[in-house]
Amino acid sequence: MATLEQSETTAEQEDGVRRRDFINIAAVSFAGVGGVAAVAPLVMQMAPDADVRALASIEVDVSKIEKGQAIKTSWRKQPVFIRNLTEEEIAQADAVPLSALRDKETLKERTASGKENWLITLGVCTHLGCVPLGVGEGENRGDYGGYFCPCHGSHYDTAGRIRKGPAPTNLVVPEFEFTSDTVVRIG
């Protein structure tokens, strides 16, 4: 045993108290950090899986869509509208002054250059996510000849822009690219 001086003992004890507190705090905070880190995989597992992410782009052959017709296809499990606009519909859309729009965008900005007749939008109403009508033959296309959402009465024009009703913005145009004259890749 070491030689003990009374005063040294006291000093050691005080030092000891400080060192002890430090180690206890370090141990508890280390364990806390570990606990928080362990939560990461529990949160991450809810994000889209690798196979869901792998389906993030699709290719669509649009050669069979006549002028004035539209089709509904599915991208990332959401409906996508692909419409082949007629000359009148394009003219109608171009005739609208930007000031009359809630969400100011021209048809040109919403389509690929040189392919202004191909209007590609998500078929998801920007209000609360219903699928608007107007793709099928004879469906209600709303007051502005585009799409009409029956849930809460949003009217979209021939460029898929919101004109009347509760929806805040135009139908979303997904990222797309014509890989050839007749094939479009979405996503």
Binding site: P41, Q45, D49, A50, D51
Partner: peptide
């Protein structure tokens, strides 16, 4: 197998 291969951290869980 989907959990083991594609789910984020699925193999771990």
């Amino acid at each position: 197998e989907h959990i083991m291969r594609d789910v984020n951290a699925g193999w771990f869980l």
